[in-house]
Design a binder for these strands. Sequence first.
RNA 1: GCCGCGGUAGCCCAACCUUGGUAGAGGCGCUGCACUCAGAAUGCAGAGGUUGCGGGUUCGAAUCCCGCUCGCGGCACCA
Length: 832
Amino acid sequence: MAMNERYEPQAIEAKWQTRWEEAGVFRAGTRPGAPKKYILEMLPYPSGKMHMGHVRNYLLGDVYARYFRMKGFDVLHPMGWDALGLPAENAAIKDGVHPAVRTQENIDSFKAEIRSLGYSYDWTREVNTSHPEYYRWNQWFFIQMLERGLVYRRFSKVNWCTGCHTVIANEQVKEGKCERCDSPVVDKETPEWAFRITKYSQALLDGLEQLKEWPERVTSMQRNWIGRSEGAEIDFAVKGSDEKVRVFTTRIDTLYGCTYVVLAPDHKLVAKVTAPERRAEVDAFVAKMAAVSKVDRTAEGATKEGVFTGAYALNPFTGQPVPIWIANFVLSDYGTGAVMSVPAHDARDFEFARKYSLPIQVVIQPASGDKLPEGDKLEGAFTEYGVLVGSGEFSGLGSEEARRKMAAKVEAEGRGKATVTYRQKDWGFSRQRYWGTPIPIVYCEKCDPERRGIPVPLDQLPVRLPEIDTQAVLTGKGEPPLAKVASWVNTPCPKCGSPARREPETMDTFVDSCWYYARYLSPHYDAAPFDPAEAKRWLPVDVYVGGPEHAVMHLLYFRFWTRVMKELGLSPVDEPVTRLVTQGIVNGSDGRKMSKRWGNSVAPASIVKKYGADTARTYVLFAGPPERDFDWSDAQVEGAFRFLKRVWTLAATHEAVAGATHAGPFEGKALETRRAAHKCLKRVGEAIDRLSFNTAIAGIMEYINALYAVGTPETPAEKAAMLEALRVLAVVLTPFAPHIADEIAEVYGAKGFTVNQEWPAFDPALVVDEEIPYAVQVNGKLRAEIKVPAEAAEAEVRAVAEADERVKAAMAGKTLRKFVFVPKRLVNFVVG
RNA sequence: GCCGCGGUAGCCCAACCUUGGUAGAGGCGCUGCACUCAGAAUGCAGAGGUUGCGGGUUCGAAUCCCGCUCGCGGCACCA
C-alpha cells in the first residue's frame, strides 16, 4: 500500500485503535509461560472530561506497558473507575440527577477520551466500584475485619467537613481545611466506625525499608505521618490523693528538671484533681477550649494558654511537688494526654514557663563543655542531648545512657515503662452520605441494646444501595440520606427477626481503592474478592503511577489493606507495589495550575483533534522527566507535531525499499545507516529502562535527523539497510506514538501489530565507532582534539597527541610531571 | 523550624545518581542560506555559557564534599 504524502493522524489513529481492540492485543494472561509485568495507574474518579494530568499519568504507564510487551512479558495493564463518591452526589443535590446516571455518563465520555489517546488497556478487566458486584467485597472485608478486631465503633471527636457534610479522616484534613473542598473542618462528637490501622503502624513503618523503588519523598512523608517516637511513660502521684498522672515523654533524661505538669483540658483527671478554689477558673478554661476546634487550638502561632488546677504532682525520683496545670497545647489523643514540663530543655515548656512565671531548672549541660546560665537567665530552651547535672545518681551521664537507665528504673519501681507512641490515628471511615458502600450493620434494640451493631450475614451480601427519589433524599441537609429511606433502613434483625434498623452511613471511598488492584486479576470472580491463584501469578504490582498527593492517604491505606489481605490468606505479598512513580503536574503556559479561574486549561480532546493522539503523547512525554512539573507550551506541541511529520515524510519517501534484501557486506552509507539504527535501539531501550522518556524521544529525533542526513539509498545494501532502519523506527516509536508506528510497520511489510513484535537486541559491534575523538589537555585546559582508532592503546594516543602543534606549543619549555590517560575520552599532560 | 525537590544557552531540557574527563543529545525561539515571482511549508547551516554564590578535594569539578542563597512542594505546639 502507498503512503499518503501528508501526515494526517486523524486518518490513521481511529483505524488502529479499532484494529487493536478487535484483535484484543492488550489482553493480559495470553502468554502463560512468559514473565509477568503488572503496570497500573491510579484508579480515576470519572469526571466528565480528562485533564492533562490524567493524560500524563496514563502515558507513563502506557509506555512501560507497550515496551514490556515488546520485551516478551505477559503484561497486565488494566483500567477502571473509582465511581462512588461525593462529586456525583453533590451534583445530584443541585440538579436532581441520580449519581448512578451521572456517573455512567461520565464514565462513557471519559472512556471515549481514553480510547482516543490509544492507551493499551485490557478492557475485559474493567472495574467499577459503584457496582454491587464490587462493593459487596468492601462489605465482605468489613465483616472479616470486624471479626478480627480490625474494625470497631467508637464515640469520639471527629473531623466534620462543613462543606461536604460528612466526617472525614485525619489524612483528609489539610491545615484545618478539607482536602477536597477547602471548607473549614470542625470537631463533632459522634459515633463512627474505624479501622484499627494503628495496629499496623510499626509494620507499615518497617515495610518502608523494603520499598527501595519508591520516591524518597513519599516514604518520608509516610514516615512522618506515622510519627513513631520512643520514650517513656511515667506516673506522677497527685499530692494528697490516690490519683496518678501518667505522662509521656521522649526525654526522661530531663526528669529532674520538671517544674510542672500539664494535662490536656479534656483529660479525665482534670475534674478530679482541681482544687475547689480553682474550680471556677478551670471550668471556664475547659469550656472555652471545648468551643474551639482542635485544629484552631493547636494551629501554628496560636498562643499558649493555661490555668493552674491548684493541685500538685510528686516527681517520682525526687518526691518534689510540682504544680499541675492544664493548657491548650497539650493534646488528649496523643501519648497519655499529659506531659511533664521541663522548660529549660523544651521550647514549648520554656515559652509557657516564661509566660506564667514558672521555675526553670537546668539539668542538661552541652556536651561541648559550655555552661548554660541559671534557669531564670536562660534565653531559650537547650533541647539537644548533653550531660546530666543536678540529677541525683544520674548526674554525669550522657542523655542517651540516662534515658535507658532512668526508664529501666521507673519500670523496675513499677512507676512507668519505656514505650513507643505513634502520631498516626485509626482510620475513621463512616461517611454521612448516600453514594458509597453501605456499612453492613443492623441495630436491633432487642438483642443489641448497646447499639454495638450486628453484622449482616455473609450470605445476605451485598447490602445494595436502594433506589431513591433523588430530589427527596439527596438534599444535603439533615440526617444521612439513607436514614430517610424507610423501606431500606427498616429491616428485620438478622439474629432475632425483630424490627431493626440498618446503619445508614456509608464507607469512605478510599476503601474502594485499597484493593481494586487485586480485583483486576479476576474481575468476575464471585467466591472471594479475587482469586488467590491469580494473585500468586501477578502480585505485586511492578510499576504504579500516580500523583504524589496521595502519599499519606491512598498509598498508606492500601499498604495497610494489603497486609490484611495477606493475613486473610488471599494474597502472598506484604507490599502492594514494587516501584512507585509519582508524576509531576502539568501547569498552564503561564506557570499556574491549570484551572477555569485562570483560563489556562488545555483540553486533551482539543489537542487530539488538532494534532492527533501521537502528537499529544509525544509532546507530554517529551516535555520533561516524569516526576517533574512542567508548563504547557503550544510551541513545543508544534515541535512534537513537526517531528512526527518528519517521521512520516521519511517513511513516505523511502517506500521503494519495502522489499529490499541484501546479505551483506554493508559499507559506507549502508553501514552508517545500520549503525544509526542500532545505536538508537540501544539508547531508546536504556532510556525507557531508566524511565527517562524525554531523552528516549530525543534519541529518536536524533535518529530521524541521522536518517535524513544519509540521503536516498541507491545500492541494494543501502536499500536493505534503510528498510531495517525504518522497521527499527516503527519499533522505537511504538511506546510513544503507536499509531504512526503501526502505519509505518505495515507499509514496510510487518505482519500483525508492532507491539506484538519483539524489541530487537542491538548488535554490539554496530554501536561502537571506528574512530574516537580524544580531547587533549595541558594542565587541565583543552588544547587540541585528535581522532584515533577506537582500539588505540595509551601509547598510540599519546604519540598522536604529542605530535599536535598546539600541544607542543603549550608544553614548550616545561617539564612533564604527569600524564593522565582516560580511555576513549581524553589525555592530559601535567607540566610545570 | 524540619524534610524533600529544583537552579545549566533567550525558553524547555541533556550531561550529575551508576564512571569526576572536550559544557550540549533533543525541542522551541532567533539569524542566514536553499527552494519560490513572493510568502507559507520544507530542507540545510549558524550564533548563543562566569553551569545560582563562596570554599574544599583533585592533574582536572556542572558532576564529589562543606557553607550560603533563591524558587517550589510537604509536614509542623505530637511532649
